[in-house]
């Protein structure tokens, strides 16, 4: 019974996300193609109209969507599931399942878009794909990278879901302000301190498995880091989702 409930929830979440993604594309096309053409039509008439869908980067929009879809409406999702007799545990699995499927769709969008332009599949870490010599490895790496984006969104979303409306407002306004101030001070301090960055750069190169001979990074290193990140995010989002409770705000 429980498995059936989880799979129903996964499919439901996936379907709802796809509908939202389609609407995002509609808005994207509207803003980037229809709106400029509308202005052009009113100013220049029919002569300068351009409808070039190939010029649009749907993958970038999809990746932003992945993060946003994972990050927003988590408290509403909790309210909806608990109202319908679904535990936090099952709701979380339902959301994870939906996210896994949605991420796969966005990888497909990227592949279709790449081939439609006659380009090679995206290599996230330099020439790593070349050293593997296989598109499959690229696709897997792409999937892991996109998944990392969505689970990061999930952590943000579930943490925000713990906050009241006032708390959310404080975080949304306060965090960017604090970040700007902190970064400004940090930048000033670093300029004054005249830090030797070579050590940091070398450390990053080691972590990413950079090869001086080939000038490439090891695909596996980057992927492992992303997998660890994903697992940590999944753990945090699960723990936070178990703390959700109904609020009167």
């Amino acid at each position: 019974m429980l498995k059936g409930k989880v799979s129903r929830l996964v499919l439901y979440n996936f379907r709802e996300s796809i509908i939202r993604l389609m609407w995002t594309f509609v808005w994207f096309i509207g803003i980037t193609i229809l709106l400029p053409n509308l202005f052009s039509l009113t100013i220049n008439g029919l002569s300068n109209l351009r409808f070039n869908l190939a010029s649009l980067d749907f993958t970038i929009v999809s990746v932003f969507f992945l993060f946003a879809d994972a990050a927003i409406f988590k408290y509403d999702y909790f309210k909806w599931t608990i109202q319908n007799g679904i535990s936090r545990h099952t709701a979380w699995w339902g959301k994870i399942g939906g996210t896994l499927l949605l991420t796969a769709v966005i990888v497909v969008i990227d592949i279709v878009e790449t081939f439609a332009r006659g380009e090679q599949l995206t290599n996230l870490f330099g020439l790593a794909g070349h050293s593997f010599g296989a598109n499959v490895a690229n696709v897997i790496q792409l999937y892991i990278a996109f998944l990392m984006v969505s689970v990061t969104g999930l952590v943000v979303g579930y943490m925000m879901a713990l906050l009241s409306k006032r708390g959310k407002a404080v975080v949304i306004i306060g965090v960017p302000v604090v970040m700007i101030v902190a970064l400004t001070y940090l930048a000033r301090a670093l300029v004054r301190a005249r830090v030797d960055w070579n050590g940091v750069i070398n450390f990053i190169k080691v972590v990413l498995g950079y090869s001086n001979q080939n000038g490439t990074v090891n695909l596996l290193n980057g992927s492992l880091i992303m997998i660890v990140w994903i697992l940590v995010c999944l753990g945090i989002s699960y723990l936070v989702s178990q703390k959700l409770r109904l609020r009167r705000d």
């Binding site: 019974m1 429980l2 409930k5 608990i82 109202q83 007799g85 679904i86 535990s87 099952t90 178990q242």
Partner: peptide, 12 residues
């Protein structure tokens, strides 16, 4: 508490 079988048998 956090029991789907029980939760599926109640409605608030």
């Amino acid at each position: 508490i956090e029991n789907d079988r029980a939760l599926a048998n109640m409605f608030l």
